[in-house]
Amino acid sequence: NQASVVANQLIPINTALTLVMMRSEVVTPVGIPAEDIPRLVSMQVNRAVPLGTTLMPDMVRGYA
């Protein structure tokens, strides 16, 4: 089972991601792999991401 990136807090739209906003968790469906967390830092979300939501590739500008 692969860990995915999950929002550690509410992340408002257009917010640049920081390490404290994300955690890794084994979830279904699988989202962005946890090993990509360092790559996600400073990328912006293109929608509001509620606490506990799995980050999907289409939620992060420039990721996919």
Rank of each mutant, 00 (worst) to 15 (best):
N8M: 14
A16N: 10
G31K: 01
V26N: 10
A3M: 15
P57T: 05
P29C: 03
I37Y: 03
V26R: 07
L51T: 10
L55A: 00
A3T: 12
M56W: 06
M22S: 00
D58G: 11
V30R: 13
A16L: 11
S4W: 02
A16I: 14
P50H: 13
L17S: 00
M56P: 01
Q9A: 09
P29L: 06
P12S: 11
G52S: 13
L55G: 01
P12V: 09
M43S: 05
P12H: 11
D36H: 12
V60D: 01
Q9L: 08
A34K: 08
M21H: 14
V45E: 01
L19F: 08
M56S: 07
D58A: 13
I32A: 02
M22A: 00
V60W: 02
S24F: 09
T28Q: 10
N14W: 08
T15I: 05
I11W: 01
Q9M: 12
N46H: 06
V41G: 03
V30W: 11
A3F: 14
G52N: 15
I32R: 01
R23N: 15
V20R: 07
A48E: 13
Q44M: 13
A34V: 15
S42G: 15
A64G: 12
S4H: 02
A16P: 13
T18R: 10
P50W: 11
T53N: 08
T15V: 06
P12G: 06
E25L: 06
L55M: 13
L19W: 13
T54Y: 02
I32N: 01
M56E: 07
L51Q: 15
L40V: 07
A3S: 09
A7R: 00
R23K: 08
L19C: 04
V27R: 14
P12Y: 10
N46Q: 12
E25W: 08
M22V: 11
T53F: 13
P33W: 08
A34P: 07
V45M: 07
L51G: 13
E25K: 13
V20K: 11
D36R: 06
V30I: 07
S42W: 08
N8S: 15
M56C: 03
M56T: 14
V5K: 01
N8Y: 06
L40N: 01
E25Q: 15
V27W: 02
I32K: 00
R39E: 07
L55H: 00
A34M: 13
Q2C: 04
L17H: 00
